[in-house]
Design a protein around this nucleic acid. Structure first.
Length: 475
RNA sequence: GGGCCGCUAGCUCACCAGGUAGAGCACCGCCCUUUUAAGGCGGGGGUAGCAGGUUCAAGUCCUGCGCGGCCUACCA
């Protein structure tokens, strides 16, 4: 891909308009939405939009005009608009933005068309649009120049409209349940709330390093202490890790917390939210993702995390040798320095998770990998936590929140022992102090919005649901 | 980070036994007043991602680099 240079022809055209005394970049124009016109089908109309096609026929021409709401054909006749406007028209190109006034009629083929009586150039396009038939296919250009992707590829626009719709539906659902939407800091003095490498930035006036948040969790739970019983945030988190079809360095998460609830109630909430959205988007509780039908009719499958290991023949999930043998049996690549949790995660992500096509709650994760979750009363090694898998993708993570400050401090200290330079860990004393004031028992839920949008728009890459995914700069 | 693939006109793509670059759309000129991938005739436009190498000769073969895609490794 090379930076294209504005051609002599295109410069000549700009000059042509200027010489005519017409500003090629116009101003406010009173327009109707094309969609409305297509609905009403009659009368004098005024529209504005981008010229997507021109078919000239001697001293007449057809144009396709498209705006945010739709696309309509316009017909131009020299003997109606007169010589001067006809000359102007000859200096329009595909891609120009114009305002048009005219009257609706139907062509011989019964196509609703605007008979142009007057038009005005509102913005000159100096670069030729991608090819009208094949459109813009180059994936790199589609991501780098998303505006072209949106102009040329109708489906792409729909994906982002659906994304916005999903976000409104989530807010609508939670607001109706008396949840309060809040905004918490994006810049954190201490890394917390998840296991991930953070981005580091610096505040000059305070002369301190700050971390872009990897999760909002600890701030949202401070709000539980403050008496907000149902809170949520939908916003970006940042993780300084690899980029893939499932990972973008900045991504959007929903985190919701509900006081006096627990993990089990978060399962209900998760089911309700998803079904609410899916029914509003699809009008039913199932849809196709990547050629597989996914059915959200309740009850959704539930499986205990500990039972997963029994099912594949591991008697003691915390028996390192037994787990390692299984990993070897599966021909998984291991380096030797993994602990038992690493190996379990490896087996899970390679061999187990991909099988959970239908919505599946995996319930009861070990304490060691769940530092913010409350343990079961009768089993201190396992926490009241679930992850939801759909089509092999981890979509949600939730648990009963640990609200015991003494226990939380111990857990933090264990985490600090696992810290690496890449993944700094600090005991968040301020958070411990917050818990010391008393946090109500609560359930917390996190949903990866981008992945959910992927599922609901049948997108195979996270880049297809993020308007401007991070790409390397071209040098 | 590793593996595979791609990068040719603004866009979509050809040419690939190495012989000095083509088509369609877009753009320009002429003809055409109900087309819709409108049509007809003519025209302009390319340091073939970048840098080396092999060769009489490289878009084509080799090496390195850049960017991207897919797979793979870690976080959601």
């Amino acid at each position: 891909m090379s930076e294209n240079i504005i051609s002599q022809e295109q410069k000549r055209k700009i000059d042509w308009w200027k010489e005519k005394g017409i500003e090629p970049y116009g101003r406010k124009f009173l327009k109707q939405d094309i969609y409305q016109i297509l609905e009403n089908q009659t009368g004098e109309v005024s529209i504005a939009g981008r010229i997507m096609g021109i078919r000239k026929h001697g001293k007449a021409a057809f144009c396709d005009i498209s705006d945010a709401s739709g696309k309509i054909q316009a017909y131009l006749k020299k003997d109606i608009i007169g010589e001067p406007l006809w000359e102007n028209f000859k200096n329009l190109d595909i891609g120009d933005i114009v305002g048009i006034q005219g009257e609706l009629f139907k062509t011989h083929t019964e196509q609703l068309t605007i008979l142009i009586k007057n038009f005005i150039l509102l913005s000159k396009n100096l670069r030729s649009l991608p090819e009208k038939w094949h459109g813009l296919k180059d994936i790199e250009i589609r991501y780098r120049k998303r505006y072209l992707d949106l102009i040329m590829n109708h489906d792409v626009k729909n994906i982002f409209i659906t994304r916005t719709k999903i976000l409104s539906l989530i807010r609508e659902f939670l607001n109706n349940k008396n949840f309060i939407e809040v905004e918490t800091p994006m810049m954190h003095p201490i890394v917390g709330g998840a296991q991930a490498k953070p981005f580091i930035t610096h505040h000059n006036a305070l002369d301190i390093d700050l971390y872009l948040r990897i999760a909002p969790e600890l701030y949202l739970k401070r709000l539980l202490v403050g008496g907000m019983e149902n809170v949520y945030e939908i916003n970006r988190s940042f993780r300084n890790e690899g980029i893939s079809t499932l990972h973008n360095p900045e991504f959007t998460m929903l985190e919701a917390y509900s006081a006096y609830k627990d993990c089990e109630e978060m399962i209900n909430l998760t089911e309700e939210i998803l079904i609410y959205i899916i029914e509003k988007i699809y009008g039913k509780t199932e849809f196709i993702y990547q050629e597989k039908n996914i059915n959200f009719q309740k009850p959704w499958k539930r499986i205990l995390w500990t039972d997963i290991w029994k099912e594949i023949g591991i008697n003691q999930w915390d028996n390192y040798q037994e787990v390692k043998n299984k990993a070897i049996e599966y021909h998984l690549e291991i380096e030797g320095n993994e602990n038992v949790y690493d190996l379990l995660d490896l087996i899970f992500s390679k061999k187990i998770q991909t099988q959970f096509i239908q919505p599946t709650f995996v319930i009861g994760y070990p304490k060691e990998i769940s530092p913010l979750a409350k343990s079961y009363k009768d089993n201190p090694d396992i926490t009241e936590r679930f992850e939801l898998y759909i089509s092999g993708l981890e979509v949600a993570n939730a648990y009963s929140e640990l609200n015991d400050p003494v226990e939380q401090e111990k857990r933090f200290q264990e985490e600090v022992k696992k810290a690496t330079p890449d993944r700094p860990k600090t005991v968040d004393q301020d958070y411990i102090e917050t818990l010391e004031y008393g946090m109500p028992p609560a359930g917390g839920l996190g949903i990866g919005i981008d992945r959910m949008v992927m599922l609901l728009t049948n997108s195979s890459s996270i880049r297809d649901v993020i308007l401007f995914p991070l790409l390397k700069q071209k040098t």
